[in-house]
Design a protein around this nucleic acid. Sequence first.
DNA 1: TGTACATCAGTGAACGCGCGTTCACTGATGTAC
DNA 2: TGTACATCAGTGAACGCGCGTTCACTGATGTAC
Lengths: 225, 225
Amino acid sequence: MAQSATVERILDAAEMLFAEKGFSETSLRAITGKAGVNLAAVNYHFGSKKALIQAVFARYLTPFAVKLNEELEKYQGTSAEEPPTIEMMLKTVSYTMADIANEYGNGPSVFMRLLGLSYLESQGHLRKFLVDKYGQSFKRVEALLRQVNPELSDVDRFWNWHFMLGTTVFTMAGMNPLRQMSEHSYDQDTPVDEVVKKLIPFLAGGLRGASDAAKAGLSETESVV
Amino acid sequence: MAQSATVERILDAAEMLFAEKGFSETSLRAITGKAGVNLAAVNYHFGSKKALIQAVFARYLTPFAVKLNEELEKYQGTSAEEPPTIEMMLKTVSYTMADIANEYGNGPSVFMRLLGLSYLESQGHLRKFLVDKYGQSFKRVEALLRQVNPELSDVDRFWNWHFMLGTTVFTMAGMNPLRQMSEHSYDQDTPVDEVVKKLIPFLAGGLRGASDAAKAGLSETESVV
DNA sequence: TGTACATCAGTGAACGCGCGTTCACTGATGTAC
DNA sequence: TGTACATCAGTGAACGCGCGTTCACTGATGTAC
């Protein structure tokens, strides 16, 4: 499917417009107009708008899942006795993502905004597609997280992992309006990679806060407050 | 406007459907159908779909802004020498929000999901409406945050405040699918208030992580990694 | 007390519009004999 | 080498549909005299 120039142009245009306006607010006419191809080409190549949305994700996620697993291989050896720090893992994930997003699409903030939309827009088909296709690939990340903070229960780790994901997705998805607000209020723009640098200590601190609470509290969460 | 039963029924139905499916995927026919009122009633009472969306937010946010400022009054006295802890402030905000959401609408998770959608769906009119109408009301929260972690610069505090907001919004907005995933993977459901209890140490830890990084690094953020 | 008029919440049906999808078609390239 | 057919990317125009909005209208309640 990916051999045709038309297919690539549709994917590029769709990706940018989806990230900008969301899935349901982006029409096939807007996509094919931006791509400079015929309206019917989307249905010819992809079959439907839903399938196009999934293809946009697959173009990022398939190489990302492969690359991330390769990168995380490196930590498998040094695992049990000397676990990697939270910050090391976060850097690995974020750098891998940035590399992939630059190579295969329109960059990391577009990618993250798509991820954010995939959670919040009610595209049931998309959630199912992502879980079915990529759920298995990210089991290794889960296993590594267990080594980073073994004091958390599996359920607690699940939730804190999604807290981290949420912070990241929300930040990247709202990057442009947030930067505008920062500029407007403090006369100071913050480039995307500066934001990511601020994000990492926040995420790491959050995970440590959760671990500390688990060590201190043990079922009586009230005591930490 | 709020004296008519029809108006309230439209707001209730709209709120639930917006939270469930997003703004652009919810039609006026669905809203008026659920509310049991005539299709034209929305345009009669509110003028347009956009104005309805704004009215749904106003019903929550107007009392919330008032109540939150009242609650935070209490900390103003004890401020400079003995600042409130991060956890205290987070509890105040979250409890106030839960109270308001239960009293004026369909509960906290619906409210937070609406907030999340307001960031991620490209409803330009809505963002403008929220900033114009409520921006000023939340200046006090900003001032209190400054007392909690004075070592952060204003810009850093802005970003970390939005990291916290992002975590919360994302979590509450995706509450249902996340709970399903937790149940599916660990055979263990997590009630909403349990999730909030897990969230607070994460947020507090994140803010502490940012403060520590600021104290340690001072412009050379690299050193914390 | 009765009549005429104004106001207002709500209605039913229709409006035009943009949407995703479909379909018959074209023209270029490859393949079989 | 030439002819007939098949395959395939891409096209132009139309399809039906659901959308937000509009408009003339109804019926109940309030107000002036």
